[in-house]
Deep mutational scan, measured.
Amino acid sequence: MASQGTKRSYEQMETDGERQNATEIRASVGKMIDGIGRFYIQMCTELKLSDYEGRLIQNSLTIERMVLSAFDERRNKYLEEHPSAGKDPKKTGGPIYKRVDRKWMRELVLYDKEEIRRIWRQANNGDDATAGLTHMMIWHSNLNDTTYQRTRALVRTGMDPRMCSLMQGSTLPRRSGAAGAAVKGVGTMVMELIRMIKRGINDRNFWRGENGRKTRSAYERMCNILKGKFQTAAQRAMMDQVRESRNPGNAEIEDLIFLARSALILRGSVAHKSCLPACVYGPAVASGYDFEKEGYSLVGIDPFKLLQNSQVYSLIRPNENPAHKSQLVWMACNSAAFEDLRVLSFIRGTKVSPRGKLSTRGVQIASNENMDAMESSTLELRSRYWAIRTRSGGNTNQQRASAGQISVQPAFSVQRNLPFDKPTIMAAFTGNTEGRTSDMRAEIIRMMEGAKPEEMSFQGRGVFELSDERAANPIVPSFDMSNEGSYFFGDNAEEYDN
């Protein structure tokens, strides 16, 4: 993207840094990872977990959730003011799984939030270390993106479920800051804005008074975040219109849905970061690795190297396929839920299948599930090659597409044709070009129609051997075009429920 120079890199967003050079960025990201790792080690000690239990991804998720809940100030305040039966607002906890007599047992633990905050700050040299908290939120978000298709949420806001490739980060909490905003897809931002506008339509006082002023500035800020994701002048001009509207209503909703559809071809720039579970960072720190000293990046080879040398386990339900569970977590670790499966298959070195073909449910185990038949197995999170994460949407291309997802959002900077089903997408653009945004709409449609099938995206960008740390010898991959490109292809993934 041309304006790259004016933006802070995501590592800076990730670490609240002012302008830093590459070495400083690597050190501050490393410091953040160190903090998460030290916190995780301490929690495993508190909970008396064995090494194996500490490497269980379900335990990692519970521990991450506990610290996120302990620092969720708004919710904590709300819980104190609106006490609900049987919930102690000062405590947080969740299921911890232990191996007892050759069987997995679930144990519900409860801790004072104050105590968890103390352990977290102690692991982070006394700081609140917001960057580390956001990092864990993005890992949870990436896992949700890989596990669930947001059909219901899309339909509720009037969008087409086939636009799911635009929904990265749709389950990120509001408090995820600049680093969170960077990884949100165009569809996620559109959905947040539509929800806001709908509230304004239904509630006369939404934009009024002292609160209304705050609401208005939040609305304009979200519009600017979305505008910054678009790469064409016409899309940005249309966002200006939406932002400046005196009284946002149905016309703005129409414009936003139009823009979301246009992003299936004229893709937005959305950041991709490899955020790993805390149970990967903990053992690495415990083994003596100093992330701050060595430096770390979320968008280069580092996460690949770390996963190459990590042992992570997962509980497996009786009829689940461990290899499929591994694929789910591998995609989440690489922030690749909406990437082209052919690119992923090449990088991973084994075939990556669409969601609907995987015999696996989510990673988390519900409290009512029976533990008797639970097994555990090693997650295979290694890769054959590594590639640089991208934040450009890439230019655009036609490809055989599917009944489910009709476009992709690249996660890796790797040369390819970008699949999208042009006739299906263009069919949504018939007729409606009147109104105050008509010239911009016409211009956007013209650009979409001009998108050429034979153009290559990320020209000359390749993948790298894991021994090639400096990215000196790019390998331009070859793809098996007979395979499906979309992950949520004609899909039956479970729906995400809060």
Rank of each mutant, 00 (worst) to 15 (best):
190 V>G: 15
306 L>R: 15
11 E>F: 03
388 I>V: 04
358 L>G: 01
424 T>R: 01
387 A>L: 00
409 Q>Y: 11
490 G>K: 09
125 N>A: 09
292 E>I: 13
231 Q>E: 08
281 Y>L: 09
178 A>W: 02
100 V>Q: 12
87 K>Y: 10
423 P>L: 01
76 N>P: 00
236 R>A: 06
61 L>P: 06
438 S>N: 15
141 S>V: 11
217 S>L: 14
8 R>P: 09
85 A>S: 13
250 N>W: 09
335 S>E: 05
299 V>C: 05
10 Y>F: 11
395 N>A: 14
409 Q>A: 15
34 D>C: 14
5 G>H: 05
426 M>G: 00
497 D>C: 10
248 P>W: 10
46 E>F: 14
95 P>I: 06
207 W>V: 12
137 M>E: 08
50 S>F: 13
313 Y>L: 07
65 R>T: 10
422 K>G: 14
266 L>S: 07
133 L>Y: 02
496 Y>C: 08
375 E>P: 03
475 I>N: 01
137 M>K: 14
419 P>K: 12
469 E>V: 10
498 N>A: 06
126 G>R: 13
246 R>N: 13
264 L>C: 07
23 T>S: 15
310 S>V: 11
488 F>N: 03
149 Q>T: 09
335 S>M: 02
488 F>L: 05
367 S>I: 00
18 E>G: 07
413 S>P: 03
163 M>R: 00
264 L>A: 10
66 M>R: 06
15 T>I: 15
102 R>L: 14
75 R>M: 07
104 W>S: 08
192 E>P: 05
221 R>D: 03
328 L>H: 10
32 M>L: 00
11 E>A: 07
175 R>P: 07
9 S>V: 01
399 Q>G: 09
202 N>A: 11
452 K>I: 13
70 A>S: 15
166 L>R: 00
91 K>S: 05
196 M>K: 05
265 I>P: 14
269 S>V: 07
183 V>L: 06
121 R>K: 12
51 D>M: 10
177 G>P: 00
74 R>F: 07
250 N>T: 07
167 M>Y: 06
80 E>L: 08
72 D>E: 10
403 A>M: 00
481 M>Q: 10
349 G>D: 05
76 N>G: 03
186 V>E: 05
321 N>I: 09
349 G>A: 04
495 E>T: 13
406 I>G: 01
321 N>D: 01
75 R>C: 09
118 R>M: 07
74 R>E: 09
44 C>I: 15
129 A>Y: 01
113 K>T: 07
233 A>T: 15
423 P>G: 14
136 M>D: 01
179 A>Y: 01
301 I>M: 12
75 R>T: 13
29 V>H: 00
102 R>W: 15
297 S>H: 06
295 G>W: 12
245 S>M: 01
362 G>E: 10
333 C>N: 05
357 K>S: 05
481 M>K: 12
206 F>A: 08
322 P>L: 07
281 Y>R: 09
62 T>G: 13
288 G>F: 13
5 G>R: 15
391 R>T: 06
168 Q>C: 09
496 Y>E: 02
443 E>G: 11
114 E>Q: 13
407 S>V: 03
197 I>F: 06
256 L>G: 13
33 I>S: 07
304 F>M: 14
392 S>V: 08
63 I>W: 07
11 E>S: 14
191 M>T: 06
425 I>A: 15
443 E>P: 02
22 A>S: 15
419 P>C: 10
466 L>S: 01
441 R>G: 02
8 R>V: 00
345 S>L: 06
485 G>E: 01
157 T>K: 04
432 N>K: 13
70 A>C: 08
145 D>E: 12
276 L>H: 13
289 Y>V: 07
355 R>L: 15
373 A>H: 08
426 M>E: 00
59 N>P: 07
463 V>F: 00
175 R>K: 15
77 K>L: 10
391 R>V: 02
423 P>E: 02
28 S>M: 06
468 D>F: 06
465 E>P: 00
275 C>S: 14
241 Q>A: 08
80 E>P: 00
481 M>T: 02
359 S>I: 13
363 V>G: 03
124 N>D: 05
454 E>A: 14
80 E>C: 09
214 K>H: 14
461 R>P: 02
163 M>V: 15
6 T>L: 00
236 R>Y: 01
325 K>M: 10
296 Y>N: 08
202 N>M: 11
33 I>T: 13
159 M>Y: 04
123 A>P: 08
467 S>L: 15
105 M>C: 15
95 P>Y: 07
440 M>W: 14
232 T>K: 13
68 L>F: 11
487 Y>K: 08
79 L>F: 09
205 N>Q: 10
478 S>T: 02
279 C>Y: 12
226 L>K: 09
484 E>F: 05
376 S>W: 11
319 N>M: 01
454 E>G: 14
247 N>A: 10
471 A>N: 01
293 K>G: 13
360 T>K: 07
308 Q>V: 11
15 T>K: 01
355 R>G: 01
21 N>R: 12
4 Q>P: 00
234 A>Y: 04
431 G>F: 15
341 L>Q: 03
413 S>R: 12
454 E>C: 15
302 D>S: 14
390 T>E: 03
155 V>L: 06
364 Q>K: 05
151 T>I: 01
122 Q>K: 04
420 F>N: 11
295 G>P: 10
234 A>V: 13
242 V>E: 10
207 W>Q: 12
257 I>K: 02
484 E>S: 03
498 N>I: 14
470 R>W: 06
319 N>L: 07
128 D>L: 12
81 E>C: 12
96 I>H: 04
365 I>N: 08
398 Q>L: 15
318 P>E: 03
441 R>L: 05
381 L>C: 12
437 T>K: 10
155 V>C: 07
461 R>N: 02
397 N>H: 12
111 Y>E: 14
201 I>G: 03
424 T>W: 09
70 A>R: 03
498 N>C: 02
254 E>K: 14
269 S>D: 11
325 K>V: 06
72 D>M: 12
390 T>V: 06
450 G>D: 04
462 G>M: 01
490 G>H: 06
108 L>H: 11
9 S>I: 07
286 A>M: 11
399 Q>L: 09
65 R>N: 13
426 M>T: 14
258 F>V: 11
244 E>S: 07
466 L>Q: 13
397 N>I: 09
68 L>Q: 12
18 E>Q: 06
221 R>I: 09
199 R>G: 05
118 R>L: 14
394 G>A: 04
70 A>L: 01
390 T>C: 12
193 L>Q: 15
68 L>S: 13
309 N>S: 13
134 T>K: 00
472 A>E: 12
138 I>P: 12
166 L>K: 04
435 G>S: 09
450 G>T: 15
439 D>M: 01
161 P>M: 02
440 M>N: 09
104 W>I: 14
21 N>G: 01
488 F>A: 01
181 A>V: 02
248 P>N: 01
377 S>F: 12
253 I>Q: 14
478 S>P: 10
138 I>D: 09
37 G>E: 15
378 T>F: 04
142 N>A: 06
56 L>P: 11
79 L>H: 04
451 A>H: 14
347 I>K: 08
306 L>M: 14
438 S>E: 00
302 D>Q: 14
96 I>T: 13
112 D>K: 04
39 F>T: 08
82 H>T: 10
417 N>E: 00
379 L>R: 02
490 G>V: 02
478 S>G: 12
23 T>L: 14
481 M>S: 06
354 P>C: 13
483 N>T: 03
405 Q>A: 11
478 S>C: 01
269 S>G: 06
135 H>C: 08
204 R>D: 09
260 A>L: 03
212 G>V: 01
376 S>T: 11
439 D>A: 00
349 G>W: 10
400 R>G: 09
102 R>I: 01
253 I>H: 07
150 R>K: 13
175 R>L: 05
226 L>M: 10
477 P>W: 02
363 V>H: 00
301 I>V: 11
202 N>C: 13
361 R>A: 03
403 A>Y: 08
277 P>V: 13
218 A>M: 05
417 N>W: 15
45 T>W: 03
31 K>N: 11
435 G>N: 08
376 S>M: 04
400 R>N: 03
272 H>V: 03
172 L>M: 03
217 S>G: 02
242 V>N: 02
121 R>I: 08
78 Y>P: 02
326 S>W: 08
